[in-house]
Nucleic acid binder design. Structure first.
Length: 327
DNA sequence: AACTCAAGCAACCGCAATTTT
DNA sequence: GAAAATTGCGGTTGCTTGAGT
């Protein structure tokens, strides 16, 4: 069975010969590819347009990176896959010069097996049932140690496009300690904002593109890496303007509504504010009602509400409960 | 040397989404 | 607005290669 687009033509299939590559390359370099369906006809190829497109994207494109994946790329794939799942095209966008097909193949042939050998389910990134018992004790200890954790969300970018919807936070993943993250390599060029997951002492545990964190927060739950203390949004170019910090004390022991009552808004690293004229830093000193403080800032109130009215804490507790019961 | 098996990879397939007619 | 064409994506297949026996 062939493609519908090539049913009328005599179509060659299988591996591409160097001559075919040459023809396709020469044609696209001179004419571009406005319509893939017409490319084979004008390039003199006995292929269907779909096949030409694939060959170009996966092999002939000049900006492709050759060679095996680096450890850093591998970690990026794992981190983003933990959030997005098998959305290879999306994952590949964060790896310049890599194609979705390449990422997918690498995942299926290498990473998947590596995760399984580490006792992790490659789809959910959670512990496989056969490994649960042995690690439950560690997780339980973490819960205890972090029972006074604070949850911090920070934003500092005037007019930042907070387009978040009613996504929910769950527990956030922490990378293995031996992995060094490189934020600039995974932030998308169109959206120069990173979220940084912080430990209790404010040390960054993991960086993720902001949109990945926000759009997919429901999928983040990972019993293996629990209880970050904070999330901070920061600009990739280090042009920090202001930070609004929300502290939810001891959130793991409170209901969501109670957590919202103890929100503190603090300003850090503050230098400039939005052009609405309100001095957010002054306004946010001390403990304030969140609605007041955020009305006067450029922090998107809808964004805040989506977090506060989400199932963040209940998710978290459910997850912990489940783990506790497993233990 | 011949065979088997698994890993890695390129390409295909079908479907869905988007664009064009 | 509907139909057709095109594009994009993820799952899958099948070929090549190299290691092990």
């Amino acid at each position: 069975m062939g493609h519908r687009c090539c049913s009328k033509q005599k179509i060659k299939r299988g591996l591409w010969s160097p001559e075919e590559d040459e023809k396709l390359l020469r044609y696209i370099n001179t004419h571009g590819h406005k319509s893939w369906s017409s490319v084979p006809k004008f390039a003199g190829l006995q292929r269907c347009g779909k096949s030409c497109r694939l060959r170009w994207i996966n092999y002939l494109r000049p900006d492709l990176k050759r060679g095996s994946f680096t450890a850093e790329e591998e970690q990026i794939i794992i981190d983003i896959h933990r959030i997005l799942g098998n959305r290879w095209a999306q994952i590949a966008k964060h790896l310049p010069g890599r194609t979705d097909n390449e990422v997918k193949n690498f995942w299926n042939s290498c990473i998947k097996k590596k995760l399984i050998s580490q006792g992790l389910d490659p789809q959910t990134h959670t512990l496989l049932s056969s490994h649960r018992r042995s690690s439950a004790c560690t997780i339980s200890n973490n819960i205890h140690q972090n029972s006074n954790s604070i949850f911090i969300m920070s934003s500092h970018i005037p007019n930042a496009p907070f387009e978040t919807t009613c996504q929910t936070f769950s527990t956030l993943p922490k990378p293995p300690p031996n992995i060094v993250q490189t934020p600039s390599s995974i932030v998308s060029s169109e959206f120069q904002t990173l979220s940084t997951i912080l430990s209790d002492d404010g040390e960054p545990l993991q960086h993720l593109p902001y949109e990945l964190l926000m759009e997919n927060a429901t999928n983040i739950c990972s019993p293996t890496y629990m209880n970050p203390s904070a999330v901070e949004l920061c600009n990739d170019d280090n042009n920090v303007n202001w930070v609004s910090r929300l502290n939810v004390h001891d959130f793991s022991a409170q209901t969501l509504e109670e957590g919202a009552q103890v929100l503190q808004v603090q300003q850090e690293k503050g230098k400039t504010f939005d052009d609405k004229g309100s001095d957010v830093r002054e306004a946010n000193k001390g403990n304030l009602e969140t609605s007041v403080s955020f009305e006067s800032s450029n922090f998107d109130l809808g964004f805040l509400e989506s977090v506060l009215t989400s199932e963040f804490i209940s998710h978290d507790l459910n997850c912990m409960d489940e783990l506790a019961w497993n233990f």
